[in-house]
Design a protein around this nucleic acid. Structure first.
Lengths: 251, 251
DNA sequence: AAAATAGTGTCTTTAAGACAATATAAA
DNA sequence: TTTATATTGTCTTAAAGACACTATTTT
């Protein structure tokens, strides 16, 4: 066993959180400034090491609470494909399992233990390359955004970007911001209100500063969306590491 | 650092392969009989430990080659959510990353190094509970089958179950077997041949023992299927560990 | 009344669902 | 000709795309 075990790799696991929200009409991600080496001072996704008594989902919930004060029961954590390049972490062999979390528009994030600062940052800014992210967090964030876009097509997760109650217009803005497109308000309204279990009218209305007050809805009971919400013009290839071994075409 | 590190968990990673194929009109999975403890003598998914010089995709390719002699370039490996229960492996802390592989109808599998025997087994038999699978491989296999079903809806992966060339009838059988439904041959034909990049006619025909010979096709260049292939009556909830933290409703 | 935002109705187009008859081979 | 399998055509229905007007509020 000792002989064979030399081939094995003892390593540590981390979870990294891509916490997305819609603020100021943009898709934003929660970033921390790293207080420790490596990559001290760089922006990074919040995350941390897996502990002995917890599984990955538990670690993700714990990190979420530590970094944002959010109870995972309020959120939606989706596990993404692991990143496992042997040289992705200068501290040694560390494989990370990223989680996508969808959050409603939150107050200012509270700086966590491991972070000197936490802030919301527009995703396209973070991905622009104007300043680097620690580790391979740029690839992870890209994957998380892609997954969020796909989830909007097939599930009712868009309601998780909103508060307890919301207007159809707010929900449409979520789609427009996450997809980066504009949608026809009439067709969107029809789709949302006629798809069983997507939203339920709550009866009351929300007054704005001006204009006609909008009717309020709450999230319905359905999880999957059938038929799916269609997004125009996306014929994507399978993403990076998740299907690494399958990228070659069959001839 | 030493103090903090006590909280961390040093562990090993494995990859497990759910290699699916269609044989004898049934969805089948490649199982090995475990030659070593733990679970010696039980059926299990092929798999093994991650090594120091490889990433997870590389480990999956290596295991695939070792267990089946298949070159990963011919196959399609899809990473599934990790299984990380602290007590899932009696040998200690082992987290596993499952991969789904789609294979054409293969000859008899060659027994691998770690296995005393390898065989194809119908998936519904393996999941029936009549005999147990090692570790949490029953849950992994369930997840793999669900993923395969979903992939058939949204991608052209069904062609990977077939050989280099195939008939529309063979492709339809793949859908029927994996989904466990029956499909209208006329509508299926229309959908497949009119969806851009799904299949390309190869010109020749394949003669059967009897009946009209079927035209042969090869896989097209498209990966995603737009519009998606619709499966009736599936309103699924998010699966087990992948969304463990999200199972609670928001209320 | 004017400005601002919310909300609805109809026609067209696309694609799926539901049906049966014809074509091509071997025996 | 019979048998067996492959293939194709049409009508209906569901839902998305495109489009403009009406409704409700504040100022």
């Amino acid at each position: 066993m000792t002989e064979r075990r030399r081939q094995h790799q003892e390593l540590r696991l981390t979870v990294d959180l891509a916490i997305l929200t819609v603020r100021s009409g943009r898709l934003q991600v929660l970033l921390i400034e790293r207080g420790n080496e490596p990559f001290r001072g760089l922006a990074a996704l919040p995350g941390g090491f897996l502990r002995a008594d917890e599984d990955l989902g538990g670690a993700a919930e714990r990190e979420l609470l530590e970094e944002t004060g959010l109870d995972a029961g309020d959120l939606h954590l989706i596990q993404l494909p692991a990143f496992s390049d042997p040289r992705r972490d200068p501290r040694g062999r560390v494989v990370t399992v990223p989680y996508l979390a969808i959050a409603p528009n939150l107050p200012v994030p509270t700086a966590g233990s491991d972070a000197t600062g936490a802030r919301w940052e527009p995703v396209d800014e973070a991905l622009s390359g104007k300043y680097p992210l620690a580790f391979d967090h740029r690839a992870i964030l890209t994957l998380a955004r892609d997954e969020a876009r796909k989830q909007l097509e097939n599930t009712t997760i868009a309601t998780r970007f909103c508060g307890e109650t919301f207007t159809i217009g707010e929900l449409r803005t979520v789609y427009e911001v996450v997809w980066g497109t504009s949608l026809d308000p009439r067709n969107f309204n029809r789709k949302v209100t006629k798809t069983e279990g997507f939203v339920e009218p709550v009866g009351t209305k929300r007054a704005q500063d001006t204009g006609r007050p909008a009717a309020l809805y709450r999230a319905g009971s359905a999880w999957t969306l059938f038929p799916a919400m269609l997004r125009n013009g996306d014929h994507e290839e399978p993403a990076a590491e998740a299907s690494r071994a399958s990228a070659r075409s069959r001839k």
